[in-house]
Nucleic acid binder design. Structure first.
Lengths: 207, 207
DNA sequence: TGTACATCAGTGAACGCGCGTTCACTGATGTAC
DNA sequence: TGTACATCAGTGAACGCGCGTTCACTGATGTAC
């Protein structure tokens, strides 16, 4: 993982850009797994194969790192949900999104993807810029879902997508608390049932 | 708020018990408002009119305080939801619970009541004991809701209550991020719509 | 009921640690001529 | 194209702060007789 570039070298612009992306990717993963307060700038830099001081060549502060790492996470999540639903019929696409979203967990095979689910309350206590990034990410994903609910008018699709999003965020958050207990599974199942109930009604309308 | 007991006095057992309750009540409020990491033991003690050192006469560690403060918050929430729905018909009672739950916010008039909503992801990153208290609190509230869905079999009522709980927790968490933006209101409205949609079906069945 | 003493709630200073951040330094990169 | 120099990515030690926690101390409470 750590590249074998000799130390104390100035890097080319390309390498600098790659380093920055590596820090963001590392930070994004660590924040989602452990929470914002529990991950320090040293730990992120070490994870990216660097020493503490270099951090401030790329970011002004930890807050800025948090904001950008979350943007990175939202980008990755959005791209995944988009590619996994490409070409699928409307309701099936949404069901796929819900299935993917609800499978986020602390387990290594299905790591957290969405800052809203992995860091929800942390984000609520963060500064304005971090919250803006989070709200923007929320809006984008709600829109992605709404765009796949083509059976109903756009305004209604957006409302339904918003409701689904709240349910998914709550379920993943709660399952994260109840992990390693049977409770986690039933929390996710109950949330899935509620969402499917609403989607079933849409199918009925069409049919 | 601070009682005028002279300093450096040993307190009677009654006073000691009152002090402990005051610390828990203060901590509970502060944690819900600011998050677990952002509130220190000093700040809690000062809020309760005490000095830092006294903390360890009542609690073994900050983790223990967190666990007990959350239990206190769940007790208060449960009591409120119970008293506010006493004597109400089934679906109306659940609608009342949903309305109360969704009105939690950072505003002083409607402070956070539920650790799951105010501290969700923080709890997921806490130690086992804290998570156990949270899961227990979750279970109690789900059961409270299920007990008010008498129109359907108990197992189904529990599933529906679980789904509603995820939706509410997610919505309040997201609204907390989007605060001071129009988004917060629409997040809560969309969640309410999804829940009402499910409850409407129950009423239909009965009628 | 009165006296002597151990208990322990609360004080406030101090400890040690980890954190975000700063800084002097290094030396290849990129640029100016 | 070649040379001289400013730039700046990365290093690793250090700073300062706030945190959780500890501790010697105080003196009223509660208890033993």
């Amino acid at each position: 993982m750590i590249r074998d570039i000799p130390n104390k070298m100035r890097r080319s612009r390309l390498e600098t850009e790659e380093t920055r992306k590596r820090i963001l990717s590392t930070a994004s993963r660590m924040f989602l797994e452990k929470g914002l307060a529990a991950v320090g700038t040293r730990e992120v830099m070490a994870g990216a194969g660097l020493t503490p001081g270099g951090f401030y060549r790329h970011f002004e502060s930890k807050e800025q790192l948090i904001a950008e790492a979350n943007r990175t996470a939202f980008d990755r999540l959005y791209a995944k949900l988009e590619s996994e639903t490409a070409g699928k019929p409307p309701v099936k696409a949404v069901e796929r999104i819900v299935s993917l979203y609800l499978s986020q967990s602390r387990r290594a095979e299905t790591p957290y993807l969405c800052p809203l689910a992995g860091l929800g309350s942390d984000l609520g206590h963060s500064d304005l810029h971090v919250r803006e990034v989070a709200v923007e990410g929320y809006m984008r994903i709600v829109q992605l879902i709404a765009d796949r609910l083509t059976l109903v008018p756009k305004a209604e699709a957006r409302k339904i997508a918003g409701g689904i999003m709240s349910t998914m965020v709550g379920a993943v958050t709660l399952a994260g608390i109840a992990e390693e207990r049977g409770a986690a599974r039933s929390i996710l199942n109950d949330a899935l049932s509620l969402i499917k109930y609403r989607l079933a009604e849409l199918k009925k309308k069409r049919g």
